[in-house]
Nucleic acid binder design. Structure first.
Lengths: 156, 156
DNA sequence: GGGAATAGACAACCTAATTGACTAACTATA
DNA sequence: TATAGTTAGTCAATTAGGTTGTCTATTCCC
């Protein structure tokens, strides 16, 4: 068990651990054919969901402005992760649909995250990892509902 | 104990917990006379240290370019957290010195972080919090040396 | 003294967000 | 059913933080 720590270490450790997991994810993704994927893309693809979403749905789910969501959608389209189609039911709207490549990115990401978790269970034990998750969840919950948009900008 | 989780939850929880702590910190700081302080400022002030630092020291410690450090230093000066003085020993250099207001920001931040940690110890128990810190540290360490500059951009 | 290295500034550019103003299209109602 | 109001999305400008490249002034070292 560690000697006592300063309060400021806790957020620093959270940031460092987050960064370590995400960096590893993207090293792996790059090796497996997705060198241009960025963390935001995975989260956005997840926010788009299995059935289509409109730009403003994406904005709401990510907790950002419509303009920001539109830019993200444009980037996802440029990289081949989503297709933008006119909404047959609403002439104003644009439907965003994950392409097969987009689906693949999500599947790969899920695999890598699961593999990471298994590795930490092997190192720390299942109980410790579950405790870690539960405790982080309680701390995170104290900060209000977690929007996906709370996520990074630092991941470049 | 929680039921089993997906691998992707772990980084999300880390990000959410980090965000919760930092948001709480800045709510408190704003109430106590530092409404314009941003997370980067605290980390930069800490990097400047008790004795003066030059712009390029700051850059090295934060892991960013000299230009970026110069911009941060300018922002800190504008907010009254550091004074920029010519270095008596080196005509090229600029010495950055924390002002009393800068010191106050650091003291307040440390207090708030310590109070947060105490609150989580009261809720989760000291053992759980220490385990949380130790486990996060191991995960963070797996991602290579943690530069302070790994920190956010998301904190706006 | 003179060449190499260093400290910092300035400019241009990138990324990811913001707000404000605007157009096009849908909806509800008088 | 004409129209007023709302909603979807875009464009433009701004902000914040970072980057690289270029430049001057100064210091270090031989």
């Amino acid at each position: 068990m560690s000697t006592d720590r300063f309060g400021f270490e806790l957020p620093l450790l959270m940031a460092g651990a987050f960064r370590a997991l995400i960096d590893d994810l993207h090293r792996e993704l790059a090796q497996r054919g997705h060198p241009d994927a960025r963390p935001v893309h995975g989260f956005a693809l997840q926010a788009i969901g299995g059935d289509d979403a409109r730009v403003s749905d994406l904005a709401r789910r990510l907790g950002v402005s419509k303009q920001a969501a539109a830019k993200t959608a444009a980037a996802l389209e440029r990289l081949g992760y989503v297709a933008r189609e006119p909404d047959p039911a609403d002439g104003r709207a644009v439907r965003l649909r994950r392409t097969p490549r987009g689906e693949e990115l999500l599947v790969l990401s899920a695999e890598i995250f699961d593999r990471q978790r298994a590795a930490w269970i092997a190192q720390l034990g299942a109980d410790r990892v579950r405790a870690l998750e539960d405790d982080l969840e309680r701390i995170a919950a104290a900060g209000g509902p977690a929007k996906l948009g709370d996520l990074p900008g630092w991941l470049r």
